[in-house]
Design a protein around this nucleic acid. Structure first.
Lengths: 348, 348
DNA sequence: TCTCATTTGTTAAACGTTTTCTTAGCGAGT
DNA sequence: ACTCGCTAAGAAAACGTTTAACAAATGAGA
């Protein structure tokens, strides 16, 4: 509508017949401004369609009200739920979110972090790449901007982190299967050099151990995290002379591969095989017997992440010294029982 | 590592023993700077870990190198693929992306647009809310910043838009089913007041009409876009005395509901019913006979969107006048045949 | 009436860049 | 020797805010 570039605070001031300082104070509700002037200012701003220039504002004030969100893998539905929730919460708190996808590539991660630094984001939320941590991630712990890790912790770094309690997650799965009488259980997991996979397995193992059951190590398939790997692993498990009566798939992609394999073998779930997976899946409703899963508390994780980061930001602003560093928050998963697991029928 | 706040261009200049102007010219490769000084500057910048202050830069230069990405529904997997591709392309072109989710809520859309305006984003990519267009969206066509619509066109606005050619999409589905001999076909679609649904149906109808087949209007289920609606509609279709031999589900959610209904009825696909859907689905590999789908060209759409917007931005910068307005780009979908459709067996 | 507080408003100085304009330096042509 | 170009470097003026410091105005107490 209006021609020419956007109006500045000066034009608002001129139209309202006051100084720019008065306009600024009015619009930010800081300082004292009389009722009558406030109205004049607001009217003028309204009429001109004034929108404060964020760059100018942050240049002067030092805060950008921007959060960086750097995700390791945008194709992972679990991360997507996190992104969605984090965006919602940040936005509600008055922060904009710059979305970055590193696609599991440390180099992209590095570049994005440099960009976020240049943008002077007030904070960064990072789901880090699997392979090692870049120097720039380490730098987050100190000065440039407060950062927080989500879902994946990095051992050596003293950065806040919010993750699922994966030990408990494994244990929940174990206890459920044990309750149903399963003793010969298979596990399809990613590489044990990744903390998450390791913790889930450890929890699973512990859960059974506490009930006096020892896992058959030969039924633990350790590979990578892809659907193909899950498929192959499942076929191996199902081809054994005495195949497991239940299988625990420790992530989304692996579960997909497992289900595909089960379908190909024509096995019926849960009659011939019980299956328990991790995370609510978008297509969960589709699978005929609904999937029994251990879910990660994605809303709670998003909420804790954002609130913790915002707290760090305000602390930093007030110059508080780093006292309670190395806060690693772990949130509890939940078991959702559906039709894909059942009590064992016959003991062959 | 380094204590205190981040270094400015002045500190780099002092360390290199030159003026700030020289540093700026060196770092931006603008203006003439002698070899030796360039090296001194780069070394100093490197040593200090200098990162240019984006706010200051854009305040002076007028460009933020930020793109707004405002999505109507982050839970839609198709939109997610768009987001992923758009982020990748923008990032490769040196732009950062501010992600906003309106969640089909016009009010949130409005707020986000105001925020993007305040941030002085260089451009905005918008998948608009279904219900009506906000005044601020209309404003995009004129001055504040160049904007482009994706996936959903808005009739009255003279804004660039990039969408799937939904007429052709419908026609492709129709021709495929006709080739297989289907004559009694059902359609499960969203509300016909939405252009997309209407176009897909029109194309579908036309495709059959061109082969001399008239659709049975009673088999066209018009509801909303939810999975629940799809499920209910499917149940209605499958309960008819003479049920259709094939069903066309015009979107993701509806297809999910349809498949659930088919499962509940214990019908076998494609022997008793052929099913064709829209869009590659994340869980496509899972469904036993793979799904036959008409896919939207999401990569091409993302590519066209970003390049068109960036062109608009540079045009705007060079002050070019709006000549070829109202560009509505439509990209062709593709048919992917899998196992969920088959030639009709018996004619009951 | 004169001071002194207290309120309300304005002036002007930052914030960290980019960029225009100016100047210094210098070799070449007369 | 003097001017004329030419190049590389620097000085300083923006860009649009916020905010500290200050001025003006008002009312109260003596």
């Amino acid at each position: 509508m209006s021609a020419g570039p956007l109006p500045t605070i000066h034009e608002v001031a001129r139209l309202a017949g006051v100084s720019v300082a008065t306009v600024s104070k009015t619009l930010n509700r800081s300082g004292k401004v009389s009722e009558v002037l406030q109205e004049r200012v607001n009217a003028a701003a309204q009429k001109l369609g004034y929108a404060p220039h964020a760059s100018a504002r942050s240049l002067r004030s030092g805060a950008t009200r921007i959060l960086g969100l750097l995700v390791a893998d945008l194709t992972n539905p679990y991360f997507l739920r996190l992104v969605e929730n984090i965006e919602r919460l940040s936005s509600a708190a008055g922060y904009s979110v710059i979305l970055c996808n590193s696609a599991e590539d440390p180099e992209r991660e590095e570049r994005h972090l440099a960009m976020l630094l240049s943008q002077r984001a007030d904070g960064a939320i990072v789901i880090p790449t699997r392979r090692g941590w870049s120097g720039r991630l380490a730098a987050l712990s100190s000065l440039p901007m407060p950062g927080i890790l989500v879902d994946r912790r990095i051992e050596g770094l003293d950065l806040d982190s919010v993750t699922t309690d994966n030990l408990t997650l494994g244990r929940l799965a174990a206890e459920h299967l044990d309750d149903l009488g399963h003793r010969r259980v298979g596990v399809i997991m990613g590489s044990p050099e990744h903390q998450i996979a390791r913790h889930r397995l450890d929890g699973f193992r512990t859960g059974f151990a506490e009930r006096g059951v020892t896992l058959d190590e030969r039924l633990i398939e350790k590979n990578n995290f892809s659907e193909m790997a899950g498929h192959a692993a499942a076929l191996r498990l199902l081809s054994r002379s005495t195949r497991p009566t239940a299988i625990f798939a420790t992530n989304n992609h692996l579960a997909l591969g497992l289900l595909r394999a089960v379908g190909e073998r024509g096995l019926s779930i849960p009659d011939e095989l019980s299956v328990i997976a991790v995370d609510e899946l978008p297509w969960a409703g589709l699978v005929r017997p609904g999937m029994t899963v251990v879910t990660q508390p994605s809303e709670a994780i998003a909420e804790t992440t954002v609130s913790t980061l915002l707290r760090r930001i305000s602390e930093g602003r007030s110059g508080m010294d780093e006292d309670d560093n190395e806060r690693s928050i772990q949130l509890p998963p939940a078991l959702v029982v559906r039709g894909s697991t059942a009590a064992i029928r016959k003991q062959p």
